[in-house]
Write a protein that binds this DNA or RNA. Structure first.
Length: 422
RNA sequence: GGAGAAGUGGCUGAGUGGCUGAAAGCGGCUUCCUGCUAAGAAGUUGUAUGGGGAUAACCUGUACCGGGGGUUCGAAUCCCCCUUUCUCCGCCA
């Protein structure tokens, strides 16, 4: 959520930044409502103040034994007017809040300006696309032939885009999760969490999934609970409505969770394999920090995710998303894209976004600034560290041998307990 | 799931209709004092949202005592609903 005070004070700048995302975005309507809202509040405040004073006088007069019926009648008659104004105040407040919640974050000045994902900027490339002296197979074929994933029976149990890991496939997935968590907790200093997978609508609103993206999520019938689309949601909201100590920042958290997504609107895309599914595993990195720490911590967080790919010896590139492609809550975002032979292209395997104070304002996460003595909003950021299922797919494809077997990256072997799948 | 009790400021804890945004204590902050691993004294100390002011200091209105509604001229205080926590029972991995 954007700060209404900043919208008021720097309307032109905010408008310009939003239009970099999408020319149709504008804050004019919010400003219009805000003006009416403040007007209504001022009027209501004045009337309430008047009533308060008169009520005090009544109290005093009663003690003195005076007759107060006339003035009581007068104050009572003010009631309707106050009620009406309060109703108007409440309506305008709600309208403004609703509108503010649906406006995306302003992009950072350093986010490349663009009109589509084609304008994203490759900023770093590590390794070269894997070369084969045979025709490489796609991961869905390898996984089936090596009996690592049962796609058909997954569909039987649930529906399309569900699958079952089995045998060494299940073991490899588990090894990846353990490996990622160990690196981030032991080497990078993150605190590990295992949060709820079902969260309420307030929590979903805190990180920006609601109210706009309800159709992307699985909701429990008859309950105010949603399956999380990413661990970002529960982990960022851990400190919702709290005031943190400045010396405790940055708070670096990591969590493995399954993630659940409806994938509404993506029918027909990536229908095969593990790339786009309704349930997948992910290890997430989340940081809360001061505005001063923000830029550096975001770079470090991205670096922490990159290191996983490098340890696994997977070729990848780092892409700075342009203003048209960054997420709703983000002001800046790097995607890490791993080389996928079956696509003959790079595919997103991690997305590292800096939200500034956008989520903190929604979730009300603040810290006491020791210099100013004021409570200020923290900055939040998160990134995949990294997507497990897509890593699974990338390993099968990049580490396949001519005879149809798959060898395991060195660092992973102590976790899998085997060095080849054949 | 059933029964009972309770939700007040950073914490402890008063307050049962008006001068209570809220006593007191603790903690925090500021200053003073003391030559000693710390004690003492004084002052200060909630959040949100408006208005004024220079987007400062500061002044000022309103709202907030778990959440929402109601009664009343006036509600932390009375009534209703919800919620959370605790205790007991039931159930259960």
């Amino acid at each position: 959520m954007l700060d209404i005070k900043i919208i008021r004070a720097e309307a032109d700048k905010v408008n310009e930044l939003l239009k970099r995302r999408n020319p149709e975005l504008s804050i004019d309507e919010v400003l219009n409502i805000d003006e009416k809202r403040r007007e209504a509040q001022t009027k209501a405040d004045e009337l309430r103040s008047h009533r308060k004073n008169l009520s005090k006088e009544i109290g005093i007069a009663i003690k003195e034994g005076k007759d107060t019926s006339e003035i009581q009648a007068h104050v009572k008659s003010m009631g309707d007017e106050i009620s009406a104004l309060e109703e108007k105040e409440r309506e305008l407040n709600e309208a403004q809040q609703k509108l503010l919640l649906s406006i995306p974050n302003t992009p950072d000045e350093t986010t490349p300006v663009g009109e589509s994902e084609d304008d994203n900027v490759v900023v770093e490339k590590v390794g070269e696309p894997t070369k084969f002296n045979f025709e490489p197979k796609a991961h869905w074929d390898l996984a089936t032939e090596l009996d690592l994933v049962d796609f058909d029976r997954g569909v039987k149990l649930s529906k399309t885009r569900f699958y079952i890991y089995k045998n060494k496939g299940a073991r490899l997935e588990r090894a990846l999760i353990r490996f990622f968590l160990d690196v981030h907790t032991q080497k990078h200093g993150y605190t590990e969490y295992l949060p709820p997978l079902l969260v309420n609508s307030r929590t979903m609103t805190g990180t920006g999934q609601l109210p706009k993206f309800a159709e992307d999520m699985f909701k429990c019938e008859g309950e105010d609970l949603y399956l999380i689309p990413t661990a970002e949601v529960p982990v960022t909201n851990i400190y919702a409505n709290e005031i943190l100590k400045e010396e405790d920042l940055p708070i670096c958290s990591t969590a493995y969770t399954p993630c659940f997504r409806r994938e509404a609107g993506s029918a027909g895309k990536d229908t095969r394999g593990l790339i786009r599914v309704h349930q997948f595993n992910k290890v997430e990195l989340v940081k809360l920090c001061t505005p001063e720490q923000s830029v550096e911590e975001h770079e470090k967080l991205t670096r922490d995710a990159q290191e996983i790919l490098e340890l696994l010896e997977l070729p990848y590139r780092k892409v700075a998303l342009c203003t048209a492609d960054i997420g709703f809550s983000a002001k800046k975002c790097y995607d890490l894209e791993v080389w996928m032979p079956s696509y003959n292209n790079y595919r997103e395997i991690s997305s590292c976004s800096n939200m500034g104070d956008f989520q903190a304002r929604r979730a009300n996460i603040r810290y006491k600034n020791t210099k100013t003595g004021k409570n200020e909003f923290v900055h939040t950021m998160n990134g995949s560290g990294i997507a497990v299922g897509r890593t699974f797919a990338a390993i099968l494809e990049n580490f396949q041998d001519e005879n149809g077997s798959v060898h395991i990256p060195k660092v992973l072997q102590e976790y899998t307990g085997f060095d080849i799948i054949e």
